[in-house]
């Protein structure tokens, strides 16, 4: 369910906390598990809980409380666009609308080819760079004009073709 490599990474997280506080590593462990599997299935959450010596329900509570965990499969690339007020004043909403139109989907939908999922985000802490979006939780994309959005979509599609060959 999780690779040795993932468990090694989780071990590094556990080491940050006092020996009797393994549960503190649950957020990092779930993020590592999600990176590996694309989303968090019930069994994955249970495996993480088991490894950290906590009740599966306690790990599930964490996985469902924090917005960046995905509890169901989604597109290969999750694009989370910030539309909160500071961004909205500089085109955050327009950027989201442009993406919806380009991808032919609404928020919380995935393109039929399974490539892109679009999400509405709250403040990413990067409002000065508006419009901004977050790609797969890890990469902040700043100043997302329509040209920058086009470029990003092209790049991600090309990446995928590169991986396929």
């Amino acid at each position: 369910m999780l690779s040795d490599d993932a468990f090694k990474k989780i071990d590094r997280e556990i080491a940050k906390y006092p020996a009797d506080q393994k549960q503190s590593a649950v957020m990092a462990a779930l993020a590592i598990a999600q990176d590996e599997n694309g989303y968090l299935a019930q069994e994955t959450i249970a495996a993480v809980a088991d490894y950290l010596g906590m009740a599966p329900m306690a790990a599930f509570e964490v996985a469902s409380f924090y917005n960046m965990y995905d509890l169901a499969p989604l597109g290969r690339y999750k694009l989370t666009v910030c539309t909160n007020l500071p961004c909205a004043l500089s085109g955050g909403v327009d950027a989201a609308e442009y993406l919806k139109q380009k991808l032919g989907i609404a928020f919380n939908e995935t393109t039929p080819d399974g490539l892109f999922t679009l999400k509405q985000g709250e403040c990413l802490g990067a409002c000065g760079d508006a419009p901004v979006l977050l790609m797969n939780n890890k990469r902040m994309c700043s100043f997302m004009t329509t040209e920058a959005i086009d470029q990003l979509l092209t790049e991600l599609r090309a990446d995928l073709r590169g991986q396929a060959t």
Binding site: Q23, S24, V26, M27, L30, A58, F65, Y69
Partner: peptide, 20 residues
């Protein structure tokens, strides 16, 4: 991992403890 409320200092502590 995406919860504004964790900026509140005691929520932050619970979060480090591995809870909601």
């Amino acid at each position: 991992y995406g919860a504004y409320i964790c900026g509140e200092e005691t929520a932050l502590l619970d979060s480090i403890e591995g809870k909601k």
